[in-house]
Design a protein around this nucleic acid. Structure first.
Length: 105
DNA sequence: GCCATGACGGAGC
DNA sequence: TGCTCCGCCATGG
């Protein structure tokens, strides 16, 4: 059981049509302030793990860009739009409207 | 076991 | 409003 497993477990709980931020995932996984680990964990995800990685975005409500992703950022946006999530002309998502509200507090 | 890295966050300028 | 810098820490070489 690695830190990644916890992060993946949380990520799988994000409901359809909703999104969560890296920091939020980190916090729920009991790793506050470790948003970077979340990004690193998602980077190492394999398709077989069946994880809705596209529902994880940064605190700004945007899809993060990275050359390491080989264009999957574009795919992420596409997948989110298919779930009914709207992007602003600036390419951002309204967190106040789509952010996942977990029961935990 | 040390060192660099990483899909981030947020404070500061 | 937007860019830069630093912290944070598990993972891999």
């Amino acid at each position: 059981m690695t830190a990644y497993d916890r992060i993946y477990a949380i990520t799988r709980q994000i409901p359809y049509g909703h999104v969560a931020t890296y920091g939020q995932i980190a916090e729920l996984a009991d790793y506050p302030r470790q948003a970077r680990l979340v990004g690193y964990a998602l980077y190492r995800i394999t398709p077989e793990q069946n994880i809705p990685w596209h529902r994880v975005i940064n605190a700004k409500g945007e899809v993060s860009h990275s050359v390491l992703r080989h264009g999957t950022d574009y795919l992420q946006r596409h997948l989110l739009e298919q779930e009914g999530i709207e992007f602003t002309p600036a390419g951002k998502i309204s967190l106040s409207r789509y952010q996942w509200q977990p029961h935990k507090m």
